[in-house]
Structures are given as C-alpha cells and as structure tokens.
Write a protein that binds this DNA or RNA. Structure first.
Length: 874
RNA sequence: GGGGGCAUGGCGGAAUCGGUAGACGCAGCGGACUUAAAAUCCGCAGGCCGCAAGGCUGUGGGGGUUCAAGUCCCCCUGCCCCCACCA
C-alpha cells in the first residue's frame, strides 16, 4: 500500500522511473516512409564524472520540449550520449596512471545514473559514446570522405612545445603566463606537419546560409558571421625595385580593405615569416633582421598579440614602387603583421590607419593624407589617423571622389592596369585537427616511403587505439612511442610503413554525433541516408552559448560536406537552437584578499564575514565552479526535494536563455507548490472523485457561477500554456499559469459538479506532466485515470493528448473596460461583453468618472478599443 | 577598437499588434488555526502625500511621435557577452 498522506517524491520518483523503463515508454517510435519525426536534442556532455546544474538545466529544457511534442502527437527522437575523448582522461592517466578508457567508462556509468534520476524521457537504447570503436570507426570513415574530397591535407603548423618534457601541449595545458601545466617550463613554438580540414572552402556557404537559420538566436548568427569574417577589399601588387628604381622582378602583394588610400602609402610591411624576407633583405640589414625574426619566432601567440604591446619592426633595406603614383617606398618587417591572414603583407597608410600611424611615428616614416572629411577644409592633423569617410586629395585623377566610390574606381583602375584586383578575404582559417595526444580518434592513414600518404581501406577500419598505454606525458606523441602499433604494412604496396600517430581534435567527434543517433547501431555505415533524412535536421537543439562558434560551425561544415557527398539531403543540421543561460551560485568573496569563502563557513548570511579575518564579504551570483565554492550538487537537491521540484524550479526561475540565480528559498517555493497540488488532488480523491468514471456535466445553462469560473480557468490555462510552449519557449510563464490554475481550482473545485471538477483535475495533471512527470503520473494513478494493471504505454499521463481550448468556456457576460481621460486611467466600467463601440462610448460618457473629469464639457474626441478601454480627450 | 545584447518594485521576473505596468514566485508584513512553534490557509504590499476618499508620481537619463509609450524614433549613461595588431 502506498502512503498517500504526504508528498514524498523520493519513493514516487524511483518507482515511476522503473515503471517507465519496464514499459519502454521512452523508446523511439518507428517512422513510416517519408514521415519526418521531431528531433529534440541536448548537446551531449563530456563525461567528467559529475553532473552539474548546467547539465540539469540543459537536459530538463530539452525534455520538456520532447514531452510536449509527444503529447501533441509527434513521433519524437530524444537521445543522449557522451563526448568522451579528450584531455582530462589523458591527464588522469599521466598523473595517476589510470587507464583512460576505464576512467572514461566509469565516469559515464556514474553520470548516466545521475542523469536517470532527473526523470528524462531519453531513449537510452540509442546512446552513443565517441570513444568506443563502434562510434569512432565511423568518425574515421568520415575523415576518409574528407580526404577523398580533397578537404583534408597536411601542412606545417606551429604547436606549443614543452622543452622540458619534450612534448606537445594542448592550448589548455598552457597557463596564462605561457608555461607548461606539468613542467612549468616556458612554452615555445615548434613547427610540425599537421592535418587540416579545408573549412575555408565552405566559408561563403557557412556565412550565407546563416540568413536562413531563422530559428537561431540573432547573436549566435552574428558571432558566427564575425568569426568567418568576410571582408571585401583588393589585393594590390607592388614591384620590388633596386636603389636606382629599376625593377628586380619580385613583387609583393598586399591585401587592403582601403584601396582608396593607396596614394597615401608610405611603406610596406611584411610578416617576419613572409617567404620574400630573406631575398629582399639588404646585406647591411641582414644581421639585425635575422635577429629580429628569431626573436619574434620565440614568442608565444599570447605574447605576440598582447593588447597595447608596442609594435616592433625593421627596415629590410629594400624598396618597392607604388603602382598608383610611381613613388619609391621602403619595405619593412614587423611583428604586428600576421603571416596567415591576407597575403602576409600590408601597405602602410599612416594618415588613415591608427596602427600605421603609431608605427610611422615610432620609426619616423612619412605621413601623407589623401582623404579629408567631407565638408571640411581643415587639413591639419590632430595626432591620430582619420579613418572615417571623406573626399580624396593628393590622389591624381581620383581627387575629389568620395572615398567609397574611390574604392571601386581605384580597384577597377588597378585591374585594368594589371596591378591589382578585387578580393574577398576571410578571417576564418582552415581547421587544424591534428592532436599529438593519445586519447582521441586515430587518423586513419599510413605513411609509406614509396606510396606516401595512404588511407586505411574502409574494410580495415576502425584503426583502434592500443589498449592500456603507458602514458608518461613526455615525448613528441604518445602513440609514436608504441612501436608495435606504429609499424604496419602499407595497405597499397605491402612494404613497411608507419601509422599516422596524431589523433583528431575532439570537435570532429562532436561534428556528426547528432546523425549517429538516427541510426546508432548501423554496422556498415555511419547512418543511412533514409534514417538521417527522416529525423534531421534537428528540430530543437539546446545547449550552452559557449558552443556558439566552434561546435556549431564545425557541425554545419560537416553537414554541408555530407550533403555534397550525397550522404544526407539537407544543408543545415539544426533548424532551431536554444542557448540556455548559465546557472549561477551565491558567491562570497573577501574583496581585500580576493579569497572565495564557502557558504558553509559563513555563519550569518545577512552579514557575511570572513571566518578567519572577520572582514565583511562581498556577495554576488556567479557561474558555479568548484574553486569559488558556489556550486550546488544536483544529487543533494534531488535527495531533499525530488527531481520534479528541481525541474520546476529551474524552469520557473528564469527564461531559458537567461542566466539563472540558484536560490534555496525559491526551490522551497516550488516544493510547496507541488505539495499544494498533491494535497488538492488527494482531497478530491477523498471526496470520491475518479477520472475513469463517465460523467455528465449537464446543461451549461444550469452551471453555477463558480462552475463557469472553474471551467474558464481551465481553458484559459490551456490556451496560455500552449502559447507559452510554442515559438519561444516560456517555461517560466507556463508554470505561473499552472499556479494560477491551481489557485482557481482550490477555490472552486469543491463546490463544482464532479464532471467539471474532473475535467479540471485531468487538465491540470496533463499540463503539469511535461514539467513534473513523476508527480503527474502518481496523481494520475491516484485519481484512477488508469488502474495499476493498465498498460502504461497507453494509459500513462504522458501518453495523453495535449488538451484543446474550448472557446465557449472563455466567454464572459460582462467585461471590465478601462476609462482613460487624456490617456490617464481614471477608473473602469463593467459593460456587456458584446457591447459595440457606440454603446461603450455612451456608457462611459454617462459614468461618474466622466462626470468628475470632464467638468460638464463634451470631450473633443473619444477613442474606444472594444473590450479594453475608452479614452476621453477633453 | 569592431560587433551584439541588456536596463522594469527589496529580489527573480510578467506585460501578444503601442491600450489598466509590476502577472507568478521569493523575501516581508498582518490575520486565522495552535497552549506555543512549525506547517497550512486567508489577506496586504512600486514610491510620495493623506485618517480616509483620493491625488501626484513611476519601467537607467534626456528629447520626440501618438488620443495613448516599458513597448516606436533620436541622443546619452551604465552593465554584460563575443571578436580583436585581421590590414
């Protein structure tokens, strides 16, 4: 026998979770041919071993979306998996000697258990784990597709090098000071031959298709557009000349967005890595230039690009001719010019670029203005570059042109005369996917002395990771040290060859996992085109804003490549995206020492003080993190209040895309609300109400005012909650509507006839079900909407259809109309609901409010908004 | 420096197309129940003036459009996020 005297979520929740699992309630339904299912997806987690509140928020949001869609009759795919390769497992191996595979699997098991306590309607039969060979088999297969398409290639690139441990470091293993996490050595740059994916080939499509992603937040689209960074400009060729002005045959090409300033160029600057530097440097300058290049080469990226860092450069002792005006100008190198953007060379226009201005000041290079602000004849300089618009001067036949027109005109002239052309330039670089790490997906190629790079044939996939590695954290690459794994016969010629020892960036694994869920056990393909096209694009994707750029861009890139390879029939993977805000915890900090204080060490929260020094603490909300002692463990909340309360709180406290401040008092409030519902339903049960019995509500004209009020509340709630769950998801207002409904029921339920009371109870539970699934199911059973023997798959509250509004329930006899005088509210008036404008106007003018405020004068004007207000303008 | 966003009571947040600002909740206050407390239930509550009726005022600041502005337009201030020696 159940104890029904008190709401005890702990026992209810585990019971129902098991019952649902036994009944297979969350299995993904089959789709009939050509049908598109609804795909609700959360960004899958890295299995750190600990579920945190950010996860809870993410998965609860997606779960409500999935549940509502099911109740609306959609066939829903709602899966979960693990982004399981990555550095923490490898670090654990290096530091504590544990096996990365075991460490990861243990964490997954622990997190899966924690997740299941939330009562999510996930189909666990479709779970994917990126570090298992039945998954990364297909990551490798897809890599070979990229290779085959010419979209994967190798080139030299610099890596973070730890000179003590003699190992490559990931960016995360380099601290803010540029030191190694383990050895503490200053990290250097070192060139290695590495794999890249040619994402820049897709830059235009990735940018242009953003316009179609109407279901994405504007700011994510903007961030992606900025990241791709398409800029329109020109490349201009400058002929290298000798001291006498005669061409040497070399030329330097620069990229500029301001071809209109070409007459103002007073020097050119090359990146230190530019291939022409050595050849152009004069003998007198050689020593100092080489020293400078060496110095720059030692600097880390952080050092080189630090803000406010003075620009350093050197003259090469070489000249070029400005093709626009024939002037001879010097060539420099400088650390601020990047080798891998544009052409690795820029033209210096000090008068119209602030950076060039500072550089020219520092090295006493000439400044010539070629643009004056429109309508100004002030030709003087005020210590900075003029980067705004204006009219050209000192520019030969282009004088007097507006600078925007001049961009086109000068580019056209350059093209006609052979010294330049229009060009689009992207900030986006090709994607470096090589990682010199063990715990990642092996790149499935073999290096053969006679055949070169040979892809591992598809029938020999997967290339599995060697088990139980002995990871020291030293050496170029962990896999390279495992001889027996590296040495292999060439698949093409049979000669001796070596496996590629780099593994892939984990972002590769997460760039296609959403496709694998559609066909998770396929043994011959990553997925079939049919399964992919029937579930994707993902109808609602939910995850953190921190993935706004990289993950989402890479997943879009993969999808477009797969479209081009005929693997899928759509060009965008995620139709709608919700970026949930972060969960913040109450944080105490001693502002003088900067130390964070755990809440358990604060004795009086109303006057928080440092337990050691007694100083007053500052308090604020900040993203939960271990080091700030402001985290709240989901397990402890579930232990205390149950998953339903945690779900309700997290959805109610803030709109999903905003940050959420964790507040124990508000959690209590949600628990109280669920308790109220529990008590109200059980009071109804005690009065003998049962949902299964057929009941007749009788003739509506015989209903009492309370009964009509109850029915109106029920259907108002259906309408507003349905609306809140369409378009933008407004779970917070949906829950507040549930509260309003429960208040109305508390008032009217008892004095209403059973048929109407039952309709209200039934509706309340069905509307509550997506938010608090366990409580709704439990009360559904208590009201005998189903019997314990019924098949849950048909009779569960979660299998009920979403209710529909009966418009007749919303009709009122009279409505309250506001009376305004000159736009200010002065009172209100009950009028018949069907009164027309003329009637309302008449009633308003006859009211005491009009009498008081119009002082006998007839109004000049009367505006009537039927059913809403009357505005009298005297 | 470039781009994007936000600003509403003590707090989190509501407010569709411009139409009663502050729904719902937290904290607070008052009442009922209780020997008492907790729990529960009912009620009050933007600010100022007023015994009250009521009035004035109010959505970061300033201006504008309108019968009517939290909402639309212009200017300013503050905060948050992303990118950033990107030519």
């Amino acid at each position: 026998m159940r104890d029904v005297s008190r709401y005890q979520p702990q026992s209810i929740e585990i019971t129902w979770q098991q019952a649902w699992q036994n009944a297979g309630l969350h299995e993904t339904p089959e789709l009939s041919g050509g049908e598109k299912g609804f795909y609700a997806l959360s960004m899958f987690p890295y299995p750190s071993g600990n579920l945190h509140m950010g996860h809870v928020r993410n998965y609860v949001i997606t779960d409500v979306v999935a549940r509502v869609q099911r109740m609306r009759g959609m066939r829903v795919l709602h899966p979960m998996g693990w982004d399981a390769f990555g550095l923490p497992a490898e670090n654990a191996a290096i530091e504590r000697g544990v096996d990365p595979a075991q460490w990861t699997d243990r964490n997954i098991a622990a997190m899966r258990d924690q997740l299941k306590r939330l009562g999510l309607s996930i189909d666990w039969d479709r779970e994917v784990t990126t570090c298992h060979s039945d998954y990364y088999h297909w990551t490798q297969w897809l890599f070979l597709q990229f290779l085959d398409a010419g979209l994967a290639y190798q080139k030299e690139a610099s890596v973070n090098w730890d000179p003590v441990d003699q190992t490559v470091l990931a960016n995360e293993q380099v601290d803010a000071d540029g030191r190694s996490w383990r050895s503490g050595a200053l990290v250097e740059k070192r060139k290695l031959r590495q794999w890249f994916l040619r994402i820049t080939d897709y830059a235009d499509r990735l940018l242009d298709d953003l316009a179609d992603l109407k279901g994405w937040p504007e700011r994510v689209r903007t961030m992606q557009a900025n990241w791709i960074g398409r800029s329109r400009g020109a490349e201009l060729h400058f002929q290298v000349v000798d001291a006498q002005g005669a061409p040497t045959g070399d030329q330097i090409t620069v990229f500029t967005t301001r071809p209109d300033t070409v007459f103002g160029v007073s020097y050119l600057v090359l990146a230190p890595e530019h291939p022409l530097v050595t050849r152009l440097t004069s003998d007198e300058q050689r020593q100092v230039v080489e020293a400078f290049r060496h110095l720059v080469g030692l600097q880390s990226d952080q050092e080189r690009t630090a803000e406010g860092k003075p620009k350093r450069g050197h003259s090469l002792g070489a000249w070029v001719r400005n093709p626009a005006n024939g002037e001879r100008i010097p060539v420099w190198i400088a650390d601020y010019v990047l080798a891998d953007y544009g052409t690795g060379a820029v033209m210096g226009v000090p008068a119209h670029d602030q950076r060039d201005f500072l550089f020219s000041r520092q090295y006493e290079l000439p400044i010539r203005r070629v643009i004056v602000p429109s309508g100004s004849d002030d030709h003087a300089y005020e210590g900075g570059a003029w980067t705004g618009s204006g009219v050209l001067i000192n520019s030969g036949r282009f004088d007097g042109l507006d600078c925007v027109e001049a961009r086109t005109a000068i580019t056209a002239a350059a093209e006609a005369d052979g010294w330049g052309r229009e060009r689009l330039q992207y900030r986006l670089r090709d994607w470096l996917i090589s990682r010199q790490r063990y715990w990642g997906c092996p790149i499935p190629v073999v290096h053969c002395k006679s055949c070169g790079v040979v892809p591992v044939p598809a029938d020999q996939l997967p290339v599995t990771l060697p088990e139980h590695p002995d990871l020291s954290g030293k050496g170029v690459s962990p896999l390279a040290q495992i001889r027996g794994w590296v040495e292999v016969d060439c698949p093409r010629c049979g000669g001796s060859a070596q496996r590629e020892t780099d593994t892939m960036d984990t972002f590769i694994c997460s760039s296609w996992y959403f496709l694998r869920y559609s066909d998770p056990t396929n043994k011959t393909l990553p997925f079939t085109r049919e399964s992919a096209d029937s579930w994707l694009p993902v109808d609602q994707y939910v995850g953190g804003i921190e993935h706004a750029i990289l993950h989402l861009l890479y997943a879009r890139f993969f999808t477009k490549v797969m479209l081009d390879r005929g693997l899928v029939g759509f060009s965008e993977p995620f139709a709608r995206l919700l970026t949930q805000g972060m969960v913040q915890g109450l944080t105490y900090r001693n502002s003088s020492s900067g130390r964070y204080i755990a809440p358990s060490d604060v004795s009086d929260p109303s006057d928080p003080r440092d337990p050691v020094t007694g100083e007053s603490l500052e308090t604020f909300f900040e993203k939960m993190s271990k080091s700030k002692y402001n985290g709240v463990d989901p397990a402890s909340v579930i232990d205390r209040y149950g998953a339903d309360t945690a779900r309700m709180f997290i959805l109610f406290k803030a709109p999903p895309e905003k940050d959420l401040e964790w507040d124990d008092a508000d959690v209590e409030g949600q628990f109280r609300f669920l308790q109220r519902i529990w008590r109200m339903v059980h009071a109804a049960v005690d009065r003998g109400l049962r949902l299964h019995a057929a009941q007749d509500a009788g003739d509506p004209s015989t209903w009492t005012a309370a009964e009509r009020e109850l029915r109106r509340a029920v259907h108002t709630a259906i309408g507003s909650i349905s609306e809140d769950l369409e378009g933008d998801y407004q779970f917070n207002t949906a829950i507040s509507e549930l509260m309003i409904l429960s208040h109305a029921m508390a008032q009217h339920l008892e004095c209403s006839r059973p048929a109407l009371a039952c309709e209200a109870l039934r509706t309340l539970l069905v509307l509550l079900a997506p938010f608090a699934p366990h409580l709704a199911e439990e009360l559904w059973l208590s009201l005998e909407a189903r019997t314990e023997a019924d098949d849950l798959r048909a009779s569960s509250v979660h299998r009920q259809a979403w209710p529909v509004v009966d418009p007749s329930a919303l009709i009122r006899d009279t409505v309250s109309v506001v009376i305004q005088v000159r736009g200010k509210v002065r009172g209100s008036l009950e009028v018949p609901a069907d009164a027309d404008s003329a009637t309302i106007e008449k009633l308003a003018l006859a009211s005491t409010i009009a009498e008081k405020w119009l002082e006998g004068q007839p109004p000049r004007r009367v505006i009537v908004v039927p059913g809403k207000l009357v505005n009298l303008v005297p």
